[in-house]
Design a protein around this nucleic acid. Structure first.
Lengths: 341, 341
DNA sequence: TCTCGCATTGCAATCGATTGCAACAAGCCT
DNA sequence: AGGCTTGTTGCAATCGATTGCAATGCGAGA
C-alpha cells in the first residue's frame, strides 16, 4: 500500500537492459512481458517481477514502429468556416467526452486536433502521419470535398455530420431536415406565424435544419422563415443576436435556433430586452445538450442522441479498422418539449 | 486549385522509396525534406517536388523513435474521487480548449486521457509510455501523493490545482482560500448571516475554498457555514442539491457554490422551488466559466483566469522540457459581481 | 541406445528515419 | 603542381521492441 518497489539500482530503460539483468535475451523478455505462451511460466514470472521492481515500461514508439499499430485514434475538429470558434464549444466538448470514454474503454488513446484548414492537405497530413490507427471528425465544417477526397483511399475515417446521397465517407448524425421541421412544426402549433432561424448556412448540417424549417412553414402556408447569420464564436454571438433581435423582433414571433448554444444565448438576450420566454417569444434549440436543462426557462429542443452517436462512430471506426465495411448512420431526431416553447 | 498531383506511379511510402526514385541515398532525402543546408539547393528542390508529387509524408513513428522526441503533450484528467464525473464537465472542457489552443500553436499535438486511477501506477504508466514529451494534469483530484511521487523524478509535468507549501510538483491555480473568502465576504456584505457551501471537500481546491468561507464567517462573528456534499456528475447533482435545499433552506440565507456548475444547477433548482435569486437567496459561483454569462440571472462568481492559467501551464511545461526550472503560479482570484448575488 | 518431438530460448532481421563520419570532387592558394 | 578548404553526398550505425527461424536440451517411445 505504501512505497513497495525495491530501489532500482539501474534504471533499466530498455528490453536489453532488463534482459541482461535477467540473464536472458531481449526476445525472451519481450515475450514474457506480453504473456506469450512461448516462455516458461517460471521465467515469465521472474521477468515480470523484475520488470515491476525496476519500474520498467516498454517504449511505445519502438513497439509501434515495429508492429505498425499505434493504438491512437485522432479526434479532429475542423474549423473551416468559423476560425474563431473555440474548442471549448459545448457541443464539441460533449461529443468529445463521449468519444474519449468509448475509445479509452477499448484501450485506445485519443489524439486531439483542433484544425484550421488553411492548407489544402490538412486532412492528408493527419491520416498519413503514421501516428494514427484511425480518425474521427467532429463535424464537416465547409470541408466536404477534402473529406471525400481522403475517404476514397483512407478507410478508417468516420465523421459526425450530415449524409448526402452518394457520399463516400462514413458519417453518423441525425436527420437534420426532419429536426428542423419538428422544431418549426412545434412553433407553428403554438401559434407562431413568422419564424426566425438563427444560424448561418455554410455547414451542411445547419443548412439542412433551415431547409426543414422552411419546409414546415411552406406546408403550413406560412411566410418564408427569416434566416439570420450567427457566428459560433461565443465572444461575438451575444452582441450579434442582440442586434438581430433589435432589428427584427417586431416582425417575428418565434425562434428556431441552429444549436442549443445559440438558443441559450438567445434566451439570455431576450431576458435582457425584457421579453419573456415562451410568453412573448417561444424559442426552440437544437442538440439537447445537458446544459439545456440548466437554463431558465428550460430549453425546448430537438434532441440528437449524442451518446449513442458517439458509440456508433467508434463502432464503425473499429469495423473499418478491421477491414469491414460500415454504412453511415442517420438517427431520427426527437423533439423534447420543456419550457422555452 | 483542383487535382494537381501527377498520378503517383508507386506509392513511395518510405524515404528509401523516394531515394530510389530520385537516384540519391535515403540520408540525402531526409536532409532535403528537413531543409538542411547540407544538401545542394537544386537537389533539395528536386526531392521536395518529387515528395509532393508522390504525396510523401514521413513516418512519424520512426522519426520519433530516432529523435527521441514525440511532439506530443499528454493532457490528463484524473477522476479519483469522482468516478462518474464526465469528461464533458464544462470546467475541464474550457481549460482543455485553452490548453489545446496553446499547444497546437506551438506545434505540439495533444493526447487526451481521462483516467480513473484504480491502478496505483496510473501516472507512471503515462509518463513512462515513451509517447509524450510532457504531461499536463487538469486537477489533482485526491491523487496528491501519486503526483508528488512521479514529480520527484519526472520534470516535464505541470498540474492545475492548489499549491501546498513544500510541494514538489509544479502547479498553476488560484488562491482558493482567498477566493472562498471573497465569495463569503460579498454575501455577508449583502446581509447574509448563515452561508451554505455546496461542494465536497476531498479535492484540495474545494477544501481551501471552504476554508476561505469559514474564515470570513469567523472574522465577521457569524455562525459556521453549512457544508453540503455535492457530487460532480451532472446526472445526480440536481436531485442532490434539491434534496439539500429542501432540508436546509430554512436555516440558510445565502449560498457559496464550490464551482460554477454547482452554482448553475443551484439556480435551476431554486427557480423550480419558486425562490428568486438574489432576492430570496443570493448565490455566488466559482470559476467564471463563459456559461455563467448565459444564466438567468447572470452569475456572480469568483473569477479564475483560466485562459491565463492555461498559457502559464504551457509556458512552464516548455521551460521544464527545456531543462529549466519553473516555479508554481498562484493567481489572485477576483470577485465578479453580476446579478445572482 | 537411438531417434523424434516438444518446450524453451537465442539470434538476427526488421520497422523507417536520422546523423556522425568518411569519401569525393572542384576550386583555390602558395 | 601539390596540399587544402569547401561543398555535397553516401555509408552505416542507431533508436528499442518484435518475431520468424534455428538451436538447444530434455524426456519418451521404439
Amino acid at each position: 500500500m505504501s512505497n513497495d518497489a525495491p530501489p532500482s539500482d539501474r534504471p533499466a530503460r530498455t528490453l536489453a537492459d532488463l534482459a541482461r539483468l535477467a540473464g536472458v535475451s531481449a526476445g525472451t523478455v519481450s515475450r514474457a512481458l506480453t504473456n506469450s505462451s512461448l516462455v516458461n511460466p517460471e521465467t515469465r514470472q521472474r521477468i515480470q517481477a523484475l520488470a515491476a521492481a525496476h519500474d520498467f515500461r516498454v517504449n511505445q514508439m519502438a513497439r509501434r514502429l515495429r508492429t505498425q499499430k499505434t493504438g491512437v485514434i485522432g479526434v479532429v475538429v475542423p474549423l473551416g468556416h468559423e476560425r474563431r470558434q473555440h474548442l471549448s464549444d459545448p457541443f464539441f466538448m460533449t461529443i468529445l467526452g463521449h468519444l474519449a470514454d468509448a475509445l479509452t474503454e477499448n484501450g485506445y488513446d485519443v489524439m486531439l486536433s483542433r484544425i484550421i484548414p488553411d492548407a489544402e492537405d490538412w486532412l492528408e497530413r493527419i491520416v498519413d502521419s503514421g501516428m494514427l490507427d484511425g480518425v474521427l471528425l467532429i463535424g464537416q465544417s465547409d470541408q466536404f470535398e477534402a473529406i471525400e477526397r481522403v475517404a476514397r483511399r483512407y478507410r478508417p475515417l468516420v465523421a459526425w455530420g450530415s449524409c448526402q446521397p452518394g457520399q463516400v465517407h462514413c458519417t453518423v448524425g441525425t436527420e437534420n431536415m426532419t429536426g428542423g421541421r419538428l422544431a418549426a412544426e412545434h412553433l407553428i402549433a403554438r401559434g407562431v406565424r413568422r419564424i426566425a432561424f438563427l444560424g448561418e448556412l455554410r455547414a451542411p448540417e445547419l443548412r439542412e435544419r433551415f431547409e426543414g424549417v422552411r419546409a414546415a412553414t411552406e406546408a403550413a402556408g406560412l411566410p418564408e422563415p427569416l434566416q439570420l447569420d450567427t457566428h459560433l464564436a461565443s465572444e461575438m454571438m451575444e452582441q450579434e443576436i442582440a442586434a438581430h433581435l433589435v432589428r427584427h423582433l417586431a416582425r417575428i414571433d418565434g425562434i428556431a435556433a441552429g444549436s442549443d448554444m445559440i438558443a441559450m444565448t438567445t434566451l439570455r438576450v431576450l431576458a435582457d430586452q425584457g421579453m419573456t420566454v415562451p410568453g412573448d417569444v417561444p424559442v426552440v434549440g437544437y442538440d439537447d445538450l445537458p446544459l439545456g436543462l440548466q437554463t431558465v426557462p428550460r430549453l425546448t429542443t430537438v434532441r440528437q442522441d449524442i451518446a449513442r452517436g458517439a458509440r456508433a462512430m467508434v463502432e464503425r471506426l473499429f469495423a473499418r479498422i478491421a477491414g469491414q465495411d460500415a454504412p453511415s448512420l442517420v438517427m431520427p431526431p426527437e423533439l423534447v418539449v420543456r419550457d422555452s416553447a
